[in-house]
C-alpha cells in the first residue's frame, strides 16, 4: 500500500464573527487513495464544501485553517503560501464546481483555455498542447472535438459545459480532483452522463476524486467510500455499501430513512425532528443529540465523539440497522 493521494488529519476551519468564533469544519480526518472516489455527503451547513475549499487553499478570509494537516502525495500543503498553492492547484488538484459557467472564462475559446492550462503546468510544446486539448475534449465525450475547440463557453449546453470543465480539470493530469456538487445544476439524464464520465476517468487514470454532494443516490452510485458530515464534524466514514446499508450513526440512519424509497409505498416518511444547528449554536457534546432518539446524558456533554477505525462518531452506534 502506497501513500494515499490526499490525507487530511484533524482539520479544523475557523471563522471569527461578531458572535464569536464559529467552526464550520471541526476535527475532520480522511484519506483518498489513487483511483478512489470518496463521497462527502451532508446537508447544507454541514461543512462539506468548506473542507474541500480548505484543501485547495480557497478559503475566503477571515475563514482559516486553525488546526490540522493536509498532505498531498506525501507533501504537506496546508502551510503553502499563495504562489506555491496556485501552482499546486491546476497541476496537482483539479476542480469542478456546481456552476460550470463560473469556472470558464467567457471571453476565451475553450481550446485556448485548455492549452494555456497545459502550457503552465506541463513541459510540452504549444502544438503538442493543442493536440492534447482536442484529445481531452474527445475523452470527456464532446462530439466533434476537433471543431469544438474553437467554440466559446456560451456556445455549449449546461451538460457539455460541465464536460469542458472536467476536461480542464484533467488536462494537467492532476492526482486529485475535487468535484463540489458537479451535477446539482444538471438534469437527471445529464447527471448520469457526468457521473459515468467521472467514474471512467477515475478508473482509467487512477485519479483520486473527492465528490461533494447532498444527494444520497449519487453517493450510492458513484463513490467507493463515503464520509458523512454533520455540523462540521465527521459522523461516519467507511465503504459506501456498509455505511448506506448498515449505518451506525443515528444521523446517517435518519438521512437514509427519510429519503422516499420505492419499497416504502405511501407510508409516512421517517423524519428527523428539528434541523441542523446553526454554526454559532452547535450543542455541547455530540452535535446531533437534540435530534437523536437514543441520546443519553453522556451524549449531552463533552467530549465530542469522533470517528475511529471503522466506527461512527457515536457513543451508542447502531448495530444491524438495515435500511435498504
Amino acid at each position: 500500500m502506497t501513500h494515499p493521494v490526499l490525507s487530511i488529519r484533524d482539520l479544523s476551519v475557523e471563522i471569527p464573527t461578531r458572535h464569536g468564533v464559529v467552526r464550520p469544519v471541526d476535527g475532520v480526518s480522511y484519506d483518498i487513495a489513487a483511483g478512489e472516489i470518496l463521497g462527502v455527503v451532508g446537508e447544507s451547513g454541514a461543512g462539506k464544501s468548506m473542507a474541500g475549499n480548505a484543501v485547495i487553499g480557497l478559503l475566503t478570509p477571515p475563514a482559516h485553517i486553525s488546526t490540522g494537516e493536509i498532505w498531498l502525495n506525501g507533501q504537506r500543503i496546508d502551510q503553502l503560501t499563495g504562489d506555491a498553492m496556485r501552482r499546486l492547484r491546476g497541476k496537482e488538484i483539479g476542480m469542478v464546481f456546481q456552476d460550470p459557467l463560473t469556472s470558464l472564462n467567457p471571453l476565451l475559446r475553450i481550446g485556448d483555455q485548455l492549452t494555456e492550462t497545459m502550457l503552465t503546468h506541463l513541459p510540452i510544446s504549444r502544438s503538442e498542447a493543442e493536440k492534447r486539448a482536442v484529445a481531452a475534449l474527445d475523452e470527456v465525450g464532446i462530439p466533434g472535438a476537433a471543431e469544438r475547440v474553437n467554440s466559446y463557453p456560451h456556445e455549449f449546453s449546461g451538460g457539455m459545459r460541465q464536460r469542458v470543465v472536467i476536461a480542464l480539470a484533467l488536462c494537467a493530469e492532476p492526482s486529485l480532483i475535487i468535484a463540489d456538487e458537479p451535477t446539482t445544476a444538471l438534469d437527471v439524464s445529464v447527471q448520469a452522463q457526468i457521473i459515468a464520465l467521472l467514474r471512467r476517468l477515475c478508473r482509467d487514470r487512477g485519479t483520486a476524486v473527492m465528490l461533494i454532494t447532498h444527494d444520497m443516490g449519487v453517493i450510492a452510485e458513484a463513490t467507493d467510500r463515503v464520509a458523512v458530515m454533520y455540523a462540521g464534524r465527521l459522523a461516519e466514514l467507511g465503504p459506501v455499501r456498509d455505511v448506506l446499508t448498515h449505518p451506525q450513526h443515528p444521523y446517517t440512519h435518519g438521512l437514509m430513512a427519510s429519503t422516499p424509497l420505492a419499497s416504502q409505498g405511501k407510508s409516512r416518511l421517517h423524519q428527523i425532528p428539528g434541523a441542523m444547528p446553526r454554526l454559532d449554536a452547535v450543542p455541547e457534546g455530540c452535535a446531533f443529540h437534540p435530534r437523536c432518539p437514543y441520546a443519553t446524558d453522556k451524549c449531552r456533554q463533552p467530549p465530542v465523539p469522533r470517528v475511529t477505525d471503522g466506527q461512527a462518531a457515536c457513543w451508542y452506534p447502531l448495530v444491524d440497522e438495515k435500511v435498504i
Partner: peptide, 18 residues
C-alpha cells in the same frame, strides 16, 4: 438514469444526447 439509493457501483449506459 435516475440515481438509485441501492445502486452501488451500478453501471448504467448513460442516456445519449440532450
Amino acid at each position: 438514469a435516475a440515481p438509485q439509493m441501492d445502486g452501488f457501483g451500478r453501471e448504467v449506459q448513460p442516456p445519449e444526447g440532450e
